[in-house]
């Protein structure tokens, strides 16, 4: 016996191929919901980890000094936002993709009828949602604890957007363009180690060997810290423009790599 259909209209097979801006924005809104729902179980944990990491780094400086120097407090407190902005896109993102590849759901996600740019834009939005509140709380705690002379300029908007975008796209490329899930996980772990210990985000460039500083110039993390600090502290900042350029190039290159990998049909 034929099952009764409460709503006959929606059973009509989808018989058109829709393209263009209207469909793009529809898909974007739905995919943001999809990504947020797919993180639901982890959302509370993720928020706590983000807050603990941000506030922990800010308050942790006082363990090193009896009287915390303002320079140190300012340096670490303005580096923490970069960590908050990168965590979801660069660390969690590729590990989620690696999991999808391992459990077989990756092919279903690739078969969804949305464009690659929609999926990437929606994921970037979720990374911002996951990073910006923790960044604000970390800065607030730093301001209260150390009475920091923060000067938030309007450039914080492009700095946050580009820092998060570059981190998200780098993570996107690691997740999608590397075939082996295990390799993706290992590289992500290595990145965590490198970012916290050997990038001038929480550690000043002046404390690093010259070769490490030069090496860092070629990677995006130093430039993320430069643009973010420039938007949070007063005074002129060297190399901001070049930092924006390098970050932009990294973001475009990673987006291209991930896009190619997603669209590849072996």
């Amino acid at each position: 016996m034929m099952p009764e259909l409460q709503n006959a209209s929606v059973i009509v097979p989808h018989g058109t191929v829709e393209r263009g801006a209207k469909r793009w924005w529809h898909d974007y809104a739905v995919m943001v919901r999809w990504h947020l729902s797919s993180l639901r179980v982890w959302l509370v944990t993720l928020t706590i980890v983000q807050l603990l990491a941000g506030v922990g780094f800010v308050l942790g400086i006082s363990l090193f000094f009896v009287h915390v120097p303002m320079t140190a407090a300012l340096f670490v407190s303005t580096g923490v936002p970069v960590i908050n902005l990168m965590t979801v896109g660069l660390i969690l993102g590729p590990q989620l993709v690696a999991d999808q590849k391992s459990n077989g759901s990756y092919e279903y996600l690739r078969s969804m009828p949305v464009s690659r740019s929609v999926t990437a834009a929606a994921w970037y939005t979720v990374c911002l949602i996951g990073g910006v509140p923790a960044m604000i709380v970390s800065l607030g705690v730093a301001r209260l604890r150390y009475d920091l002379p923060l000067h938030v300029s309007p450039m914080i908007v492009p700095a946050v957007l580009l820092t998060s975008f570059a981190g998200t796209m780098l993570g996107y490329a690691l997740g999608h363009a590397i075939g082996s899930p295990m390799a993706t996980r290992l590289i992500t772990q290595l990145l965590v180690f490198a970012i916290f210990g050997f990038a001038p985000i929480l550690v000043p460039l002046s404390q690093m060997p010259r070769w490490l500083g030069t090496l860092n110039w070629w990677f995006p993390f130093r430039h993320m810290a430069v643009v973010t600090r420039a938007a949070l502290t007063p005074g002129g900042h060297a190399a901001v423009l070049s930092a924006y350029v390098v970050l932009g190039l990294w973001a475009i290159a990673c987006a291209g790599l991930a896009g190619r990998a997603l669209g590849r049909r072996p």
Binding site: H14, G15, T16, V17, E18, S38, Q100, N103, G104, S105, E107, Y108, L109, S111, M112, P113, V114
Partner: peptide
């Protein structure tokens, strides 16, 4: 992708 619906053999995520 728009014209074909797909239920893969593995469980949905």
């Amino acid at each position: 992708r728009q014209l074909c619906s797909y239920l893969p053999q593995v469980q949905m995520p």
